[in-house]
Design a protein around this nucleic acid. Sequence first.
DNA 1: AATGAAATCTCACCGGC
DNA 2: GCCGGTGAGATTTCATT
Lengths: 153, 153
Amino acid sequence: MAFRIDETDRKILAELQRDASRPLEEIARAVGSSKTPVWNRIRKLKEAGVIGAQVALVDAEALGFEACFFVLIRTAEHEAEWQQKFLKALKERPEVQEAHRLAGDIDYILKVRVPNARAYDAFYQALISEVKIHNVTALLSMEEIKSTVALPL
Amino acid sequence: MAFRIDETDRKILAELQRDASRPLEEIARAVGSSKTPVWNRIRKLKEAGVIGAQVALVDAEALGFEACFFVLIRTAEHEAEWQQKFLKALKERPEVQEAHRLAGDIDYILKVRVPNARAYDAFYQALISEVKIHNVTALLSMEEIKSTVALPL
DNA sequence: AATGAAATCTCACCGGC
DNA sequence: GCCGGTGAGATTTCATT
């Protein structure tokens, strides 16, 4: 199911991951080709779902989202019904930017972005009132050293 | 320093975080305004750095990036020189999508995206040979339940 | 099949009101 | 804040390799 990518596709994706707002002609020049072939490749990559949405990145700090937590979750429950409810809760809460189910000791990790510690506590209280959770550890970020959505192509 | 945002700005940012490829007129309609005022607001938000780059989101799975690790790091070293070297290493490695310095017991958390477990091991070996690290725990993601860059505006 | 020229059409951007 | 003009650039077609 992994989409077949050649070197030119790879370069195009790398460019679009960096800055998708530039004119097609500039992208084409950057990858050493020209408009039409690059445009056709981009179209195919979009059709195949390799390229998804095109979004504007917004500065969290500038808007006062000063707190970022990584939340490690252990649960006693492993029934399908409980999991359904838990996943639904995560997907519905916009402060959850990432949620992964893990292998091993810890069952889930979340990345939660909120204005301040108080807002995190509100989130936490709401979550544990919705679903039963065995053990929670919150790691508070002091400094965002690096943050990118770009894949290492 | 937090930029002053009103309700209309908030709606505009929410739209641009969802899909920045739509024509200005559509954005304007979605936020209940019209082209000129929306355009002026977007310009100001860009000048203020609230809106950063515009990027294409690329599907990691479709390109064979099947493995995602969260790496918890404890270190004995806390001197400036060591930290410099460590941060530099993280910033230079493209497989590190996120890196945060933490408060508390664990010093750093990384999010590392690689094609497979072998590639993670290569990354890990390279990292610990560059800088001395006291203790590392890798959490392997089995399932990406949610992943968004959008802030909960 | 891939390219590049060229034609058309959409829309960002900037003026007047 | 609305309206409309202008030109850049996206999208399509076509001739060429």
